[in-house]
């Protein structure tokens, strides 16, 4: 997967995608967008970096703890909802104001400032934290490799040193007998062990 093309493109896309996700977050109060969509886009960008550079690359540099992102996001959202109760309003009551943005005396435009924006920011972090927590957890799950075949091969080649191991399964007695014979011919050193072993099996 991680060719040079993917790595280079991931770097280029990362910045643009994050900027666009923040745009979606801030713009999403009245038009399509919002915390959830912005968060998902952010996760997509980060997931692309994971795909391109691998888990180790990011974990060595950042050591991210995504569960606390969830905690911060949820806390932010619930405090936004509870805050109006302190000033004698109902739960989830939102307020807004308009703000004229001017730079060097030039009128740029009018910005609508919403208190429910903070709720959206909370959702944004919750979504990012939860999705990346799930993704990284699945990715870091190691598949346990059965080393049974390898040990069998080692037995056949006489490489296995530890003959005093417990018999693994009674089904294998035949196979082990053969190996025991081979190894007995090969080295006198382990002969005593193997004889003991074969007798045990019989």
């Amino acid at each position: 997967m991680s060719t040079v093309i993917v790595k280079t493109m991931a770097r280029a896309v990362l910045i643009v995608a994050i900027l666009f996700s923040i745009y979606l977050l801030l713009n999403g109060a009245n038009v399509p967008g919002g915390g959830f969509v912005g968060g998902v886009l952010f996760v997509c960008a980060i997931a692309l970096v994971y795909v391109a550079y691998g888990m180790k690359y990011i974990n060595n540099r950042l050591k991210p703890d995504y569960l606390s992102w969830v905690a911060y996001g949820l806390l932010f959202a619930s405090i936004t909802a509870i805050a109006p109760m302190i000033v004698n309003h109902n739960y989830f009551r939102s307020a807004f104001t308009h703000y004229h943005l001017e730079i060097f005396g030039i009128h740029i435009g009018e910005i609508e400032l919403l208190s429910s924006m903070f709720f959206d920011i909370g959702v944004y972090f919750t979504v990012i934290g939860a999705l990346l927590f799930i993704l990284t957890n699945i990715a870091s799950d190691k598949i346990k490799e059965t080393d049974e075949s390898e040990s069998d091969r080692a037995d056949l080649l006489g490489e296995s040193e530890d003959f005093s191991l417990k018999p693994k399964a009674p089904v294998k007695t035949g196979a082990t007998n053969v190996t025991a014979d081979i190894t007995a011919n090969m080295t006198a050193n382990t002969a005593a062990n193997t004889v003991a072993n074969t007798e045990e099996f019989k």
Partner: peptide, 20 residues
Amino acid sequence: NNLVMLPIAIGLLMAPVMLF
């Protein structure tokens, strides 16, 4: 004033607090 809301609001607030 907020009697009906408070059980739900406290439950929702406690989830992130417990995570912290």
